[in-house]
Amino acid sequence: MSAHDLPQVPDNVEWPIILGIDPGTLVVGYGAIVLRPEGPALLAAGALRASRSGDVPTRLGFIRQEIDMVLKRLRPTVVVVEHAYTAINVQSALRVGEGRGVALSAAACHGAKVVQYQASQAKKTLVGVGSADKERVAKMVAMQLGLEAAPEPLDASDALALALTYFHRQRLEKQLGARP
Score class of each variant (00 low, 15 high):
residue 2 S to I: 00
residue 3 A to K: 00
residue 6 L to Q: 04
residue 9 V to T: 12
residue 10 P to V: 09
residue 10 P to R: 13
residue 10 P to M: 10
residue 10 P to L: 07
residue 12 N to W: 11
residue 12 N to L: 12
residue 12 N to S: 14
residue 12 N to G: 12
residue 12 N to Q: 11
residue 13 V to G: 08
residue 13 V to Q: 13
residue 14 E to F: 01
residue 16 P to N: 11
residue 18 I to E: 03
residue 22 D to M: 07
residue 23 P to R: 05
residue 24 G to A: 08
residue 26 L to I: 14
residue 28 V to S: 01
residue 29 G to W: 03
residue 29 G to A: 10
residue 29 G to F: 04
residue 30 Y to F: 15
residue 30 Y to G: 00
residue 35 L to E: 13
residue 35 L to N: 10
residue 41 A to S: 13
residue 42 L to M: 14
residue 42 L to G: 04
residue 42 L to P: 02
residue 44 A to W: 08
residue 45 A to Y: 08
residue 45 A to T: 10
residue 46 G to P: 01
residue 47 A to D: 03
residue 48 L to V: 10
residue 49 R to K: 15
residue 50 A to G: 08
residue 51 S to N: 15
residue 52 R to A: 15
residue 53 S to A: 14
residue 54 G to T: 09
residue 56 V to F: 07
residue 57 P to T: 13
residue 57 P to G: 09
residue 60 L to A: 04
residue 61 G to L: 07
residue 65 Q to H: 06
residue 66 E to G: 01
residue 66 E to V: 01
residue 67 I to D: 03
residue 67 I to S: 02
residue 68 D to W: 01
residue 69 M to L: 12
residue 69 M to A: 12
residue 70 V to C: 09
residue 73 R to M: 06
residue 74 L to E: 04
residue 75 R to P: 05
residue 76 P to G: 09
residue 78 V to I: 15
residue 79 V to I: 04
residue 82 E to D: 09
residue 82 E to N: 01
residue 83 H to W: 07
residue 83 H to E: 15
residue 84 A to Y: 03
residue 85 Y to T: 08
residue 89 N to G: 02
residue 89 N to E: 03
residue 89 N to I: 03
residue 89 N to R: 07
residue 91 Q to E: 13
residue 92 S to I: 03
residue 93 A to D: 01
residue 97 G to W: 05
residue 98 E to G: 09
residue 98 E to L: 13
residue 99 G to T: 08
residue 100 R to S: 03
residue 100 R to E: 01
residue 102 V to F: 02
residue 102 V to R: 00
residue 105 S to A: 14
residue 106 A to R: 01
residue 108 A to H: 10
residue 109 C to A: 13
residue 111 G to K: 12
residue 112 A to F: 00
residue 113 K to M: 11
residue 114 V to H: 07
residue 115 V to N: 00
residue 118 Q to V: 00
residue 118 Q to F: 11
residue 120 S to V: 06
residue 123 K to F: 06
residue 123 K to I: 10
residue 124 K to L: 14
residue 126 L to D: 02
residue 128 G to N: 05
residue 128 G to A: 06
residue 129 V to L: 12
residue 129 V to P: 00
residue 129 V to D: 15
residue 130 G to M: 10
residue 131 S to L: 11
residue 132 A to G: 09
residue 133 D to F: 09
residue 133 D to W: 05
residue 134 K to F: 04
residue 134 K to P: 01
residue 135 E to G: 11
residue 135 E to Q: 14
residue 136 R to V: 12
residue 136 R to E: 11
residue 136 R to Q: 15
residue 137 V to F: 05
residue 137 V to T: 09
residue 137 V to S: 09
residue 138 A to K: 00
residue 140 M to L: 14
residue 140 M to V: 13
residue 141 V to I: 08
residue 141 V to A: 06
residue 142 A to Y: 07
residue 143 M to T: 11
residue 144 Q to K: 14
residue 144 Q to H: 12
residue 147 L to M: 12
residue 147 L to W: 04
residue 148 E to L: 14
residue 150 A to E: 01
residue 150 A to C: 07
residue 150 A to Q: 02
residue 151 P to T: 06
residue 152 E to Y: 02
residue 154 L to H: 11
residue 155 D to P: 00
residue 157 S to E: 04
residue 158 D to H: 09
residue 159 A to N: 02
residue 162 L to I: 10
residue 162 L to T: 02
residue 164 L to H: 02
residue 165 T to F: 08
residue 170 Q to Y: 01
residue 171 R to W: 08
residue 173 E to A: 15
residue 174 K to M: 10
residue 174 K to G: 05
residue 176 L to K: 04
residue 177 G to W: 04
residue 177 G to D: 09
residue 177 G to H: 05
residue 177 G to S: 13
residue 179 R to W: 05
